[in-house]
Design a protein around this nucleic acid. Structure first.
Lengths: 221, 221
DNA sequence: TATTTTTTTTAGATTAATCTAAAAAATAAA
DNA sequence: TTTATTTTTTAGATTAATCTAAAAAAAATA
């Protein structure tokens, strides 16, 4: 089934995967260097190796895309990462801002039966503690349609269902403001001056959030 | 607290720890090479490195012992390994002969809070699925006094509480014979011819086991 | 005790992943 | 369309962990 790749190769595949979501499917050497905390020269070496193994399509000076095999490998790592995050939060009681680094290690454990049993044990969750969808065992991702609060209209309602920023400071802030997953919100007012937004939270409390915060909270309408 | 060591260093420390139990506290280069699946030359290199880090006491040509720091590190790895084994069996439903290799990977995950939470989640188990004691968070090991079936007298009773052989073939054999942990046995007869032993299992079924098997089943009297 | 065998160490290479500094290619600006 | 800037690649080193083959030390045997 899935071939075994080194810890390092897996991290590069994951980096390329995360960088190639959305608009840009072609990823540059420098982008990869940045999120893997390495230098461009090191990335070039690894790209050659991954291309050799047919995990990426790589043309010198022109960036890379994942092949089917590479994408499968990457999705599998993401699946593992997110399932472990659910485990850490749901079963061990970690907070949502504490689990990333540990899951970063756990995602490299290699055992298909382990991860499928874990999946069942957790009740086959659809999303991780940050609302990111968990790929199923075939690699399919069922992503719900979410919109940023910053893109909502006045008086529109929704349920907080994800975040697009995973830093601990940001997550702690949301926690403190009571803006965690599942919270129902209503856009009460759009402040013209600086783009900040006043929300009605759970039908009573109101909270003002900056445009920057609003851009990183994802809502299901 | 506990300094971080490389994956490889951890495996050497664990190997030395396991080899230095019982009578021999001094461990030889060749012994280490054997259980780490490396060559003696590689071991020598690593021993220098571990001695440099004050994790072992090493005198050329004279074998090694663990320092306090080294022993602490090793015990911690053993603690992690055994807790993960409990998790795999108790929570994910793996069989006792399936968990070793996975735990071998999981034991290198570095997070004290993770392992302490896991410990609590599992109900602070005293032993792993093979009956081996789990060191507590201070590193103390509460080992119950166990005897091998091969050392029991005729008509003596006991409860199977551990094994000293962890191979899958052996564990599957015990499973098939109903000689799993917690099973009550009585030594019914000692066969002089080949040292094999007839057991009364749970007061009714009787099972004949070879001396080799009897040596590897540990019983609490 | 002298010799043989075994064990351990050293010497010198190899592989994976990384780096810095310099060269080459692509992109942006004048 | 040259020139300047940025990005990417190559060249050459470094570190960790490993290896084989040879040398040195220790242990076993005659």
């Amino acid at each position: 089934m899935s071939t075994i790749h080194s810890f390092t190769e897996e991290n590069y595949l994951k980096a390329i995967y995360h960088l190639s979501t959305g608009n840009n499917s072609v990823v540059s050497t420098n982008q990869i260097a940045e999120i893997t905390n390495t230098k461009a020269a090191s990335v070039t070496d690894m790209l050659k190796k991954l291309a050799e193994k047919k995990l990426i399509n790589y043309i010198k000076y022109q960036g890379v895309t994942l092949t089917e095999a590479g994408k499968n490998a990457a999705v599998n790592i993401v699946r593992k990462h997110r399932l472990w995050e659910v485990f850490l939060v749901e079963k061990l009681g970690f907070k949502w801002d504490e689990v990333h680094d540990i899951a970063e290690e756990l995602e490299h454990i290699n055992s298909e039966s382990l991860i499928n049993r874990l999946d069942d044990f957790l009740g086959n969750p659809a999303a991780d503690p940050h609302g990111d969808p968990i790929p199923d065992r075939s690699g399919t991702i069922h992503q719900k349609k979410l919109v940023r609060i910053s893109d909502m209209q006045q008086d529109q309602n929704g349920t907080i269902s994800g975040v697009s920023e995973h830093s601990s400071v940001f997550l702690k802030l949301l926690e403190k403001m009571g803006l965690t997953l599942g919270t129902k919100i209503r856009v009460s007012e759009l402040i013209e001056f600086d783009g900040s937004i006043i929300l009605i939270v759970n039908d009573h409390a109101d909270r003002t959030i900056s445009r920057e915060v609003a851009k990183n909270i994802l809502v299901m309408l």
